[in-house]
Write a protein that binds this DNA or RNA. Structure first.
Lengths: 193, 193
DNA sequence: GCCGTTCCATACTGATGCGTATGGAGCCGG
DNA sequence: CCGGCTCCATACGCATCAGTATGGAACGGC
């Protein structure tokens, strides 16, 4: 009767990867603070006796979880669009790719909320640097001088980060069409023709 | 006798406003979670016996603190620039005003981190809506149609929110001059001439 | 000087989390 | 079929924080 949030139940035996998956989901849904041993154990239908067999500490779980995420994320976002040769089209493709990954947005927003944590701050910094560099390169190849390209990349990435934050409160109360229109204006404003 | 982290010490008697000030500072420095009764009491050099005389609960302190902030913030940011008649110049003035308020950025970032809290989410939503509306109006007066103005305002506000977040990790590792240059490009890109 | 109000200290309870210690159930190779 | 390995349950200890109960010090009005 009591809302148990999200219990997953099955599976006789858990693996470390199971804990990491549950941790990432909980991170996206309820933030890093909710990635706690006992609540996770309840969610998985076991007790923390199980957890401490797979991981030495909570920190180790978080470490493993975000490392996996960092790896997967780069592989699925930057790498595919990097193959587009035309820099403007590459940027547009990146924006199209990124703008629809809602689960990814939730995770990224949760990471920003925990940016003061020792494991999370450096992570977000690494990821952000890579992404900004990626976008900066594209703008340079599109004809901007180094300085202007860096500024434009900062602006674009800031807008992305801000959007992800605002999406949390449904602030841009937009329909799907309005959103597509926004993305269109976004690209037209930031990417020169 | 050992001084704890940022102890404020003096003052024989505290008022509710003293607690609210300490709460806002702690919010900016260490986030909402750090706005806890006992740590705050330690910071103020008293015990929580004092706190519970001034406030019925921790939530009441947070409520009072953010209400004061919301009021002061609107009065000090939007109201002054609203008097500028030319819409483009009004936007530029707003950007200039906002871009240098570091304490305000820290508070706003902390609020976003706690956006899932019942008191904070609606607050951020109210404030964001006001600001976006303010900017949208300016863009419309600058000649944009309603739809494009709304999109441009969303973009500008998202970039602001994202910047505030990124400033936390010193991500835009910029000198003062680089920052001014960025703000210049920011305005040139988003505000038509 | 007495007294009540203001402000705070002390000492609880209860909840929740991390981490540890230990034992026990099930399965698998010998 | 038995000892050992894997995986987990149970029961601790320890810490932190919200909130309560109660008493006490200082101070002003009378």
């Amino acid at each position: 009767m009591a809302t148990k949030i999200t219990k997953i139940e099955p599976k006789a035996h858990l693996s470390a990867a199971d804990w990491e998956r549950a941790a990432l989901e909980t991170l996206a849904e309820n933030g890093l603070a909710a990635v706690a041993v006992e609540p996770l154990a309840r969610r998985l239908g076991v007790t923390k006796g199980s957890f401490y067999w797979h991981f030495p500490t909570r920190e180790a779980l978080i470490q493993a979880t975000i490392e996996r995420w960092e790896h997967d994320d780069e592989e699925q976002v930057l790498a595919p669009t990097a193959t587009v040769t035309d820099p403007r089209e590459r940027l547009r493709e990146l924006i199209r790719q990124v703008s629809h990954k809602r689960q990814s947005h939730a995770i990224f927003a949760a990471l920003f909320k925990a940016i003061d944590q020792p494991l999370i701050g450096p992570l977000v910094e690494r990821v952000s640097q890579r992404r900004i560099d990626f976008v900066t390169d594209a703008f340079r190849q599109a004809g901007f001088d180094a300085n202007t390209a860096a500024n434009r990349a900062r602006l674009a990435y800031s807008a992305y980060v801000g959007f992800v934050q605002l999406a949390q409160i449904g602030q841009p109360r937009m329909t799907h069409e309005e959103f597509e229109d926004y993305i269109g204006d976004f690209m037209e404003t930031l990417i020169p023709r």
